[in-house]
């Protein structure tokens, strides 16, 4: 086990930021920590790294208890903080060299690692730039390069794509997959479910410091009753028609907002067919009709009763 957290409790005064949080990260996986802003992701990461004192719980990294003095363990960890932590006095190259140098004293070896990292995040054209001259996306990429240049076995990235343009975001996500292919175990926190769904092999959803669900994205979606979401674009439905739609087989709910009828049903083979039959039978004219599988947002919504993205 790369990381094992058991019953972690962290309080800020009266606020319980982490409430008996447990998690396991296995070697070679991309572990996603998904939760809305303020759910405790950063707090959890800071506790795992021994940057914060916590009230209760056990934390092991590489099967050893983690303490502020676990320098050998720290050597194998790469960290990309949520807040960009680079020196504005140093250039892009010097920054990466500085942070890499904290792990790799050997100059020759380090030069090669730094060059690789620059190439990896695509900052070749900016090596002599000072951080203040970089755009938000490039700055994030520099932050990542500083965290991963020493080729650690475990890489922790805390919301590395916040306030990043789509191009940089895709580059970052691809990069993370590449690092994982090269053998690194990844812990990735985000409040963007699409990202987590896109790259993570296992996901833990947290809310208000509590773990609410974990598993692969398929497992998570199987946990909830909704299996399919069918949207019908149409106008002028009567209340009777809406309630009739809600009584179709497998259907859990039918909601109408004046232009779209959203029917949520459990998993089943013929859900779309029965909705189409219903429309024909009732003589409902519709523009488009489409079926979606549930997202992690639906998972979050069903468990917590609120949207993930707010």
């Amino acid at each position: 086990m790369v990381i094992r957290v058991k019953n972690l409790v962290k309080r800020y005064g009266n606020l319980v930021a982490l409430d008996h949080l447990s998690l396991d990260v296995k070697e070679g996986e991309i572990f996603g920590l998904l939760g809305p802003n303020g759910s405790g992701k950063t707090t959890a990461i800071n506790c795992i790294l021994s940057l914060l004192k916590f009230d209760k719980g056990d934390i092991e990294v590489f099967n050893k208890p983690m303490t502020p003095e676990s320098y050998d363990t720290k050597r194998d960890i790469g960290i990309v903080m949520q807040n960009v932590a680079v020196y504005k006095e140093l250039t892009v190259y010097e920054n990466i060299d500085y942070f890499c140098g904290l792990y790799v004293p050997d100059k020759v070896k380090r030069k090669q690692l730094v060059d690789e990292a620059i190439q990896f995040v695509g900052l070749e054209d900016y090596v002599k730039f000072q951080p203040k001259k970089l755009s938000g996306g490039l700055l994030r990429r520099l932050n990542i390069a500083c965290g991963i240049a020493h080729k650690p076995k475990l890489i922790i990235l805390d919301e590395p794509t916040v306030a990043v343009d789509p191009q940089s975001r895709n580059k970052i996500l691809e990069g993370i997959l590449e690092l994982n292919r090269q053998g690194a175990t990844i812990v990735y926190t985000s409040h963007y479910m699409e990202e987590v769904e896109q790259i993570c092999s296992r996901i833990l959803i947290i809310d208000k410091g509590k773990a609410i669900a974990s598993g692969t994205k398929e497992e998570l979606k199987n946990m909830i009753t909704i299996g399919e979401k069918i949207t019908l674009q149409t106008y002028g439905l009567t209340p009777e028609q809406i309630s009739a739609a809600g009584n179709l087989p497998n259907v859990l709910s039918a909601e109408y907002n004046g232009s779209n009828l959203v029917i949520k049903s459990t998993k089943g083979k013929n859900n779309l067919e029965s909705v189409l039959d219903f429309a024909k039978q009732e003589g409902i004219q519709f523009g488009t009709i489409y079926s979606e599988l549930p997202t992690l947002n639906d998972v979050f919504l069903e468990i917590t009763g609120k949207e993930l993205r707010d």
């Binding site: 790294l49 502020p68 320098y71 720290k74 960290i79 807040n83 960009v84 932590a85 904290l102 500083c146």
Partner: peptide, 19 residues
Amino acid sequence: VVFSDKDIKRRNACSPIST
């Protein structure tokens, strides 16, 4: 000014160099 920055401090504290 440079070293009392909280984020920089935390980042350095993650490294294998002791405080």
